[in-house]
Design a protein around this nucleic acid. Structure first.
Lengths: 112, 112
DNA sequence: CGAACATATGCCTTGACAGGAATATGCTCA
DNA sequence: TGAGCATATTCCTGTCAAGGCATATGTTCG
C-alpha cells in the first residue's frame, strides 16, 4: 500500500502511469512522449515494476510496459475505509472537542 | 494529487492518517499511540496539513488534528479514470503488441 | 559474425527529507 | 506574573533517491 504511494509520489512516475492508462507502450515511446531520457525512464519503470504497478512484455528488442490493476484496486479498497466516514461528517470535531476536553480535565480533577 | 501521494508515501504519516480516521486527536495522543517523538509528529502533521489532508483546531494549549476529506476524494476521483479500464481487460497487451509491431515494422518496410 | 537498435545498469553528484536533541512559542491557571 | 504544559521550530547529521552520462546487455538482420 505504502509502496504504491511511494511509487506514485514521484512526478514522472505518476505521469508514466497516467500515460500507460490508455495502452501499453515501449520504453522509447514513453521517454519521447514525456520528454525524459531513456535511462531515467527505465529506472522509473523499474520502481513501478517493483511496486507491481506495471508489467513488461518483450517484443523483439523492445519492451512493452503496461499497467497492472491490482495495486490500484488495493488503493481503491484502502480508500473504502474513508468513504464510509466522509459522508456523515468527516469532521465531527465538535463532538471530539468536548470529549477531549473531558479527558484532559481528568488531570485537574481537583474539584471532584 | 501528487502532493497527496508524497504525503502518504511516508510510513508514519500514513499511519497518522489511518489513526485519525476514527476521530481527531491532539498531537500528544498521536505521538503516544504511534510511539513517536512529539517533534517528529508535529513535523509530519505539518506536511499533512500542507497537503490539505489534515486540519487543526486549537483547544486550550493543545491542538486537535482531524482528517479532511477533500484530498481523499480527489484521490478517489483520480482512481476513477482507471476503474473504467480495469474491468474490461486492463492488459489488452495482445491487441497492442500487434499494433506496436506494425508501427515498429514501418521502419523495416523493405518488403512493401 | 558484426552493425544497428532498444533497453538496462553502474557510477557519481546533488538535493530532499527524516530523525534526534535542544529550545522557542503559546496558553492556562494560581 | 511565573510555573507548567502542549506543541512548534531550529539546527545538525545521515540516508536515500533522482538525474546525467557512459556503458553493458540483448535482439534483429544482413
Amino acid at each position: 500500500m505504502q509502496a504504491t504511494f511511494s511509487a506514485l509520489a514521484e512526478p514522472n512516475r505518476l505521469q508514466i502511469v497516467q500515460l500507460l492508462r490508455r495502452k501499453p507502450l515501449p520504453v522509447g515511446e514513453i521517454a519521447a512522449r514525456l520528454d525524459l531520457r531513456q535511462p531515467q525512464v527505465s529506472k522509473h519503470l523499474r520502481v513501478l515494476s517493483d511496486a507491481g504497478l506495471v508489467e513488461v512484455r518483450p517484443v523483439a528488442q523492445q519492451r512493452i510496459y503496461g499497467l497492472r490493476a491490482q495495486p490500484l484496486k488495493e488503493l481503491d479498497a484502502w480508500l473504502e475505509q474513508f468513504r464510509r466516514s466522509w459522508d456523515d461528517r468527516f469532521d465531527r470535531f465538535d463532538a471530539v472537542l468536548r470529549a477531549q476536553k473531558e479527558t484532559g480535565e481528568k488531570r485537574n480533577a481537583r474539584n471532584t
